[in-house]
Structures are given as C-alpha cells and as structure tokens.
C-alpha cells in the first residue's frame, strides 16, 4: 500500500478541504436565509447577520401566514402539484407501457413522433399563441396540461417495463386479462420504485415551475406560490411589495422589512422541497441511471 505516504496525505487534505468548502457554500445560503427569517427585520438591515439570529422573532412568519393571497398561492401550487403529478404520471406510464409491447401497431411511428419533440419544439411564441387560442389564458389548467407528457419520463418508464420478465404477464394473459388489467394488477404493483422516482421528479418540477404561470396568468388570485414569491422579490419598495400581497396584511409593524419578509417567503416555499428531499435522494440516483441507459 502506497496510501500512507506523505504525498498521499497532502492530496487527501487538499481534496477534503475543497469538498468541505464546497458543501459549506451549498448549505450556507439556506442557513443564512433561515436565520434572517427568524430575526427582526430592522436588526437584519444593520448587517453582519450570519450563522445565528441576534433578535429572535417569529413575527415575519406571522405576517406571511396572515396573508390571504399567500394561502391562495399555496393552495394553487398544491393543487397543481397533486393533480399534475397524478395525471402526468398516469398518461406517461400508460403510453410507455403500450410502447413497451412488441405487438403494438404503429409503435415505431409513435416512438419517432415522440423523439422528434426532444430535438425540435415550436418555441415560446407559437406555443403561447396556440395555448391562448384554446382558452388556457388565465385558466388553472394551464398550470398542469402543457407539460403533462414528458417524453424523457416516458422513455425511462418504457425502459423499465421492457426489463420486466415476460412470464410475469403470461398467466394473467391466459386468465383473459386485457391490457388495462395487466397494467393495473400485475405491472403497477412491481413498479413501485420507478413510479416513486418519476412522481417525485414530476412533483418537484411542477412545484418549481413559474415561467408558464407568469406568462399565462395575470389574475393574482390564480398565481402559484413561486410567482407570489417572485413578485415579492422583485418589488423595490415596501409599498410595492405590500401591494403585491393580499388584503390580510395589516399587521406590519416597525420591525418588519421587505427583506425579512422575502427571506421568510423563500423559506416557506423551499420547505416542501426540503421535506421530500430525503425521498428524492433515495430514488433519484436510480432514476438518473435508468434514464442514461437510453443514451
């Protein structure tokens, strides 16, 4: 073993230090934001707040949680994430299941039609004009429908379904099961991990999406929470920010600043992601692997 040489120890030290610094920079912004959200706004504005609150308070959270518009936005985001994930995974998995069957007529045509869209897209303006034409402007469904089929996820599902042993379905076929029976009774129960992975990815994507919501919705009561946050972050003055928030905000005291409210909102919107993060981490390495097999 050459591992114990001096040279080796120095290399180890450099690598460990570099990676420790990297993880610190990954975590610090979240931590600092949490500290600011729990500190009095006027005190935060004096600067120098880093690892620990100086004037601990939960009044920032009280203001956010008293804002009706925030609750509406949360509701919209939750509805969007739940319905969107369910519909998207269902449609994508059904299509993948059928495309994994050799006997499907037109399989090649469907596959090519799907793969082409991975390289060519209509682009922002034609998509915008078309979706507006079919009445999705200021419509809740615009938050769900346009991205409902993900060809990438479809291919991941398909690769997984193709890897299932044929014998699994043989007996069910002999019992006269049709393909829906096969899918829901035989395939679904053994495909837990791949469904979990892709559902989590879809859910995170829907929760984080803000651009479509921003261009298709100008009714503030229909905006998801990412856009609520964005309007808050982009307001330059307290007055402008309060006008972005709903009518429930009338408890603004001397100690609260736009900055402290922004940081609090950032924390509240990040929290659901941090809560599902352990599950994500459990599955996503696998998910990325199945996906890259396709290459």
């Amino acid at each position: 073993m050459v591992r114990n040489s001096w040279n080796d120890r120095i290399i180890d030290m450099i690598i460990y230090t570099l990676l420790a610094v990297l993880s610190f920079t990954a975590i610090y912004p979240f931590w600092n934001t949490l500290v600011m959200s729990l500190n009095e706004g006027k005190d935060t504005a004096m600067g120098g707040l880093t690892f620990w609150p100086r004037e601990f308070t939960i009044s920032n959270y009280e203001v956010i949680f008293n804002d009706e518009r925030f609750f509406r936005a949360m509701g919209i985001s939750i509805a969007r994430t739940v319905f969107g994930t369910f519909l998207s995974v269902l449609i994508t998995a059904l299509m993948a299941f059928a495309l994994a069957k050799k006997e499907l007529k037109g399989k090649r045509f469907y596959m090519i039609a799907g793969i082409i869209t991975m390289y060519f897209q209509g682009g922002l303006i034609p998509t915008y004009l078309w979706l507006r034409e079919i009445g999705l402007f200021n419509n809740f469904w615009v938050l769900i429908i346009p991205g409902i089929l993900s060809i990438w996820n479809m291919i991941v599902f398909r690769t997984f379904f193709q890897g299932l042993p044929d014998e699994l379905e043989e007996s069910a076929k002999l019992d006269g099961c049709n393909y829906y029976g096969l899918f829901f009774r035989i395939v679904l129960p053994v495909s837990g991990p791949v469904f979990a992975t892709l559902s989590l990815f879809t859910a995170v994507g829907l929760w984080n999406e803000w651009f479509n919501a921003g261009i298709f919705i100008n009714n503030a009561d229909l905006l998801p929470v990412q856009n609520y946050l964005m309007n808050m972050i982009n307001s330059s003055s307290t007055a402008e920010m309060l006008s972005q928030m709903g009518n429930g905000v009338n408890v603004v005291t001397q100690t609260i600043t736009p900055k402290s409210l922004q940081m609090t909102a950032v924390m509240v919107v990040t929290l659901p992601i941090i809560m599902v993060y352990p599950f994500l981490q459990k599955y996503f390495v696998k998910g990325v692997m199945i996906g890259s097999l396709k290459e």
Partner: peptide, 18 residues
C-alpha cells in the same frame, strides 16, 4: 393507452411546431 399521450403530443408539440 397511447391515445392520451399522443393527443398531448399533437396539441402541445406538433401544433406549436406548425
């Protein structure tokens, strides 16, 4: 089973492409 996905493909990818 392919149909809903295929309709989405037409509606949200191919019509904008046109």
């Amino acid at each position: 089973m392919v149909l809903p996905g295929f309709i989405c493909l037409i509606l949200f990818s191919y019509i904008p492409m046109y």
